[in-house]
């Protein structure tokens, strides 16, 4: 009778052991790195504020939840040192997820608009900064300002005609409407202090 000696390396136990070691090592490295590279909500807010409006300081304004439109939500509201108002709102009706935009309003006029996050709706990457500028910047908060999805941007091409943007633009519009609706209701026009 021939007894074949099986090496430890060829056993299933060794294969599983290797996988477990790799998994544990990866987990350990990633847990350390995720702590080191963690981006807090405060950091994200500061990034948005710096991107949308230049100011030495921002003061948080309390949000009146009863004045928020049903189409979305107001996530934060800040006032800059010169009186301008920065508002972050989320809108529904997108392809998926919740699209969040940030508007800066100064002296009753929108001066800047950015998409803050898309929460999984990656089709927002097709919406360029120039689209947002053309659609929102310069619009005046006259008490009746409201945006529609049939606005023309991008050199005359309907934004809804661009296949990648079609499903997401309604979310951007509804977020903008939530924001301007709130500002007009509360009469926050970003005037001088």
């Amino acid at each position: 009778m021939t007894i074949t000696k099986k090496s430890f390396k060829s056993t299933p136990f060794f294969a599983v052991l290797i996988l477990v070691i790799i998994a544990l090592s990866s987990g350990l490295i990633l847990s350390v790195l995720s702590d080191v590279l963690y981006v807090s909500d405060e950091e994200k807010t500061n990034r948005d504020l710096a991107k949308v409006y230049t100011s030495d300081s921002f003061t948080a304004i309390e949000i009146d939840s009863s004045a928020i439109s049903a189409e979305g939500n107001i996530l934060y509201l800040y006032q800059a040192a010169d009186g301008a108002v920065v508002i972050k709102a989320s809108g529904i009706k997108g392809w998926k997820g919740v699209t969040e935009i940030v508007l800066a309003v100064k002296d009753g006029e929108i001066v800047n608009a950015i998409i803050s996050s898309h929460n999984g709706d990656d089709k927002t990457s097709s919406i360029k900064a120039s689209h947002l500028q053309q659609m929102f910047v310069g619009q005046k908060l006259d008490g009746n300002l409201e945006f529609t999805t049939t606005g023309t941007v991008g050199g005359g091409t309907l934004i809804t005609a661009a296949p990648s943007c079609y499903a997401t633009w309604p979310a951007v519009i509804s977020a903008a409407n939530v924001a301007v609706d709130y500002l007009q209701t509360k009469n926050l026009t970003g005037g001088a202090n």
Binding site: K9, P12, A15, L19, I22, S26, I29, L30, L33, L37
Partner: peptide, 24 residues
Amino acid sequence: VIPGSVRIPAFIMIIATFVTVVIL
């Protein structure tokens, strides 16, 4: 060190680790 029978899952785990580092 990695046995041939589990090389693919091992490679995927290694690749996934580095992709996660990139994302972070």
